[in-house]
Each structure stands twice: as structure tokens, then as C-alpha cells.
């Protein structure tokens, strides 16, 4: 969305410390929105506290917790991405060029949920071992019976 539409949405929704007041945006404009919120003198949201992701009925919701170090106000941005199938990856936009703390947070989400952050600095196999298939934190994930020739069941019939 462009800057004027964003401003209008912010005026309606406001920002607050409770998560009930969050701003939902689409994933493509995430970086742009975050930068706007950081630079705009009314908001000055210059701290990224956390990036959290969770899956709700097939949609992966990315939640960005922003905070202003000068006024102490907090703000929550939400973006939804939907993977086409249960095991396919999905694309999102990275904010690591704005905040360095985003790098490890996006790394985890990319490995555990299968979200590719465009423009980000994620490396493979930081959290999960090499050769791990699937995205563990998705609800549809099925634990493998065997990995690296180690079975996690003792008997066949368990």
C-alpha cells in the first residue's frame, strides 16, 4: 500500500501495547511500512522487538513487534502468507536491512516454517541439521520415523 493509505489506516486503528490493536498489512509492503514507521516523526518505531510466526488453519501469520525507544509506545504489524501445499515454501520480504536483530529471527522462521525472506541473509542448516525434511513448526508436520539412520521408535509396531 502507499504512504497515504497507510497513514489513513494508522489513524483509524491506532497503536497500542495490547495486541488487540494491531495493523494487518500485506506481505509485499512489509519492508516499506516498517521503514515508514521508523522514519516518520509521529511514530519513530525504531526498535524491532520480535518477529513471531504461527500457523492458523493453513495461513502463516507473521507478527512484527515494533517499539519506539523515545516514547515507549509499541505497535504490532501482521502479515499473512499462505503456502500452496503443506510442504512447500512461501515467500515474504525481509526487514534485515532495517534491523540487524531480524536476521536470527527470520532465520528461525525460515527454517521452522518454510518462509523464504527475499533480500534476507538466511543461511541453511543453522537450527535444523543438514538433511532434515519438512518444516517442524507447521501444524501439518509429521515427525519422521527415522533420521540419519536413527529410529525414534524402538519397536516397529509403536
Amino acid at each position: 500500500m502507499d504512504t497515504n493509505e497507510l497513514k489513513r489506516k494508522l489513524e483509524i486503528k491506532g497503536a497500542g501495547s495490547s495486541l488487540k490493536q494491531s495493523l494487518a498489512i500485506d506481505v509485499g509492503s512489509l519492508a516499506h511500512t516498517a521503514q515508514f514507521l521508523r522514519d516518520e516523526p509521529n511514530w519513530q518505531m525504531d526498535d524491532l522487538e520480535n518477529i513471531s510466526a504461527f500457523e492458523m488453519k493453513g495461513d502463516i501469520l507473521l507478527t512484527y513487534f515494533l517499539k519506539s525507544s523515545s516514547t515507549g509506545k509499541t505497535m504490532v504489524l501482521r502479515a499473512t502468507v499462505t503456502p500452496k501445499t503443506e510442504t512447500s515454501e512461501v515467500d515474504a520480504v525481509s526487514v534485515s536491512h532495517l534491523w540487524a536483530i531480524a536476521i536470527p529471527l527470520e532465520q528461525e522462521i525460515s527454517e521452522l516454517f518454510g518462509v523464504r525472506f527475499q533480500g534476507g541473509k538466511t543461511r541453511p542448516h543453522q537450527v535444523l541439521p543438514e538433511g532434515w525434511r519438512g518444516f517442524p513448526l507447521r501444524k501439518s508436520y509429521v515427525f519422521p520415523i527415522e533420521f540419519a539412520s536413527i529410529k525414534h521408535q524402538r519397536h516397529e509396531h509403536e
Partner: peptide, 27 residues
Amino acid sequence: LGCHLVSDGGTRPARVQFKTPSTGHML
């Protein structure tokens, strides 16, 4: 230490995500 907790009305948490301070320190 931050904790993002999501409940979907069930007997189990839907998501518990921790934002730990050591993340920044490792950077």
C-alpha cells in the same frame, strides 16, 4: 525475555514463541 502466546481455545497452546535476550548478544 519476551513470550508471544497464542491460544485457539483448546487445551493446548497454539503457539508459544520466546524472544530471548541471547539472540541479540550473539549478534
